[in-house]
């Protein structure tokens, strides 16, 4: 069995980009790589491989954080620019409200700025600010009357032991080709929105933001087994929903379990 989905090709397909501005994110790399794959499929030559940079960003963030701690406003702004989109997306997904998400975004960065001296250099800045943002977002949810019980600490009510698997069907082609970016985004967002906050937060951090299990546990104040069981639940629920939409018609013939 190949380990296809998280591992990068062994050679550097984006070596052809002239002078790379700043560091590039894994996501940008992936997009470039997709383009490179198309080139390759057309039989067009790729630049010969050079030493592929390690998967970790070469950029040393601790320096930036250290500068920000001394009161360097520009350094802190750079951290804001780097993470605001992700924090805003996370906040929107948790609160399901643009207005609350904006409050969360502001509070998270303001608190981070205020308490930068408390940030321990032994974790990533992003993990730290995610934790602040998640707490702010959960507070927003608790303030809404109907959602008084929302908590990440609460054990999920459904048995994690018996995840739901009903749709057994292969997908029709590639959703990225079948739908426009906007359509696909709407589908994916609404699928995620149907998960409980405890599950969707774990999924977002682990699979969308690509934090490790340990980082996710740290950011959410959860145990590692809790992160793992919630992630499995979230993945299977999303798989279920997406399969309902993306499956080959007439292909769901198996009964299961």
């Amino acid at each position: 069995m190949e380990r296809t989905y998280r591992t990068a090709p062994q050679y550097n397909k984006f070596a052809c980009i002239p002078s790379i501005p700043r560091r590039i994110s894994t996501r940008e790399k992936r997009r470039v790589r997709l383009d490179a794959d198309k080139l390759e499929a057309r039989g067009e030559p790729l630049i010969p491989p050079i030493e592929a940079s390690a998967s970790e960003p070469a950029f040393d963030e601790s320096e930036l954080v250290a500068k920000a701690r001394t009161g360097d406003a520009r350094a802190f702004s750079e951290l804001v620019h780097k993470y605001e989109r992700k924090i805003y997306r996370l906040a929107r997904h948790i609160t399901n409200s643009d207005e609350d998400a904006e409050d969360v975004l502001q509070e998270a960065f303001l608190k981070a700025y205020e308490h930068l001296d408390r940030f321990q250099g032994n974790s990533k800045f992003y993990t730290w600010i995610v934790r602040i943002a998640v707490n702010e977002a959960l507070m927003k949810l608790r303030k809404r009357k109907s959602d008084r019980t929302v908590s990440l600490d609460e054990p999920p009510t459904e048995g994690v032991e018996d995840p739901v698997v009903r749709e057994i069907a292969v997908w029709e082609g590639n959703p990225e080709q079948r739908y426009s970016q906007d359509e696909l985004r709407t589908i994916l967002d609404s699928a995620i929105q149907n998960l409980k906050p405890a599950f969707r937060t774990v999924f977002l951090l682990r699979d969308v933001d690509e934090l490790s299990t340990e980082e996710t546990a740290e950011a959410l104040g959860l145990s590692i087994p809790a992160v793992k069981s919630r992630l499995l639940r979230a993945r299977l629920e999303l798989r279920e929903r997406l399969t309902r939409l993306f499956k080959k018609k007439g292909d769901d013939v198996f009964a299961y379990l």
Partner: peptide, 13 residues
């Protein structure tokens, strides 16, 4: 297969 694709499609967004 569909779980892997689910993760991939989210990561590509």
């Amino acid at each position: 297969d569909t779980s892997k694709k689910t993760i991939n499609v989210y990561q590509g967004m």
